[in-house]
């Protein structure tokens, strides 16, 4: 295959995915967490699991909307645990909260328990669920809504990393405005 054509096709795809009308929602599968952590080597990030069926999750998305300028696709990963069949509703919700520039995923596996197990065998599936990853990828789980104080504290603690040039993976910045 012509590499030039491939690259221009890919750039087109990126242009589509970053144009304001679209949400890039990726299928979250058994190996996806590995990909997510590999893409963020030596970098702290927040992994947040949510569902459109969970009112406190929507409150949390509203909070993130307030703070969204302080997050990027590399520092905040949102994973919807909704069935991939309702991906359209999930995309609409992401747009409603203007969170389309973040790294968005949706559960895509016939046994959702398999993904829960892959993420954390000790997680009962309660939502919202957050994992605070530090730079060495030691993580701290949190169940239930996050308050603004906790979020701001984490943002302050990790701001050095986020503002520096230490991103291991420049590709993650392509969707950063």
């Amino acid at each position: 295959m012509n590499i030039k054509r491939l690259i221009s096709g890919v750039l087109l795809a990126i242009w589509i995915s970053t144009s304001s009308a679209d949400v890039t929602l990726k299928p979250f599968q058994e190996n996806s967490l590995q990909q997510i952590t590999d893409d963020r080597k030596n970098q702290p990030f927040l992994l947040l699991l949510w569902s459109i069926d969970c009112p406190p999750c929507l409150k949390e998305l509203a909070q993130l909307q307030q703070l969204h300028n302080q997050f990027s696709a590399s520092s905040l990963v949102l994973v919807s645990t909704d069935d991939v069949q309702i991906a359209d509703s999930v995309e609409k919700t992401i747009k409603d909260f203007q969170l389309e520039k973040l790294d968005n995923w949706i559960f895509s596996e016939s046994i959702p328990e398999r993904l829960r197990y892959a993420i954390d065998p000790a997680w009962y599936g309660e939502l919202p669920r957050a994992y605070f990853y530090d730079a060495s990828h030691q993580r701290k789980p949190h169940s239930g809504s996050l308050n603004t104080v906790t979020l701001n504290k984490w943002l302050n603690k990790t701001r050095d990393y986020l503002s520096s040039e230490t991103f291991s993976n420049p590709a993650l910045n392509v969707v950063k405005k």
């Binding site: 690259i7 795809a13 299928p27 990909q35 991906a87 993976n169 420049p170």
Partner: peptide
């Protein structure tokens, strides 16, 4: 790297 990410990113309808 961008290619890798993009190929990964286009698949929700396939997953469906």
């Amino acid at each position: 790297i961008i290619i890798g990410l993009t190929l990964l990113a286009l698949n929700v309808s396939e997953a469906k």
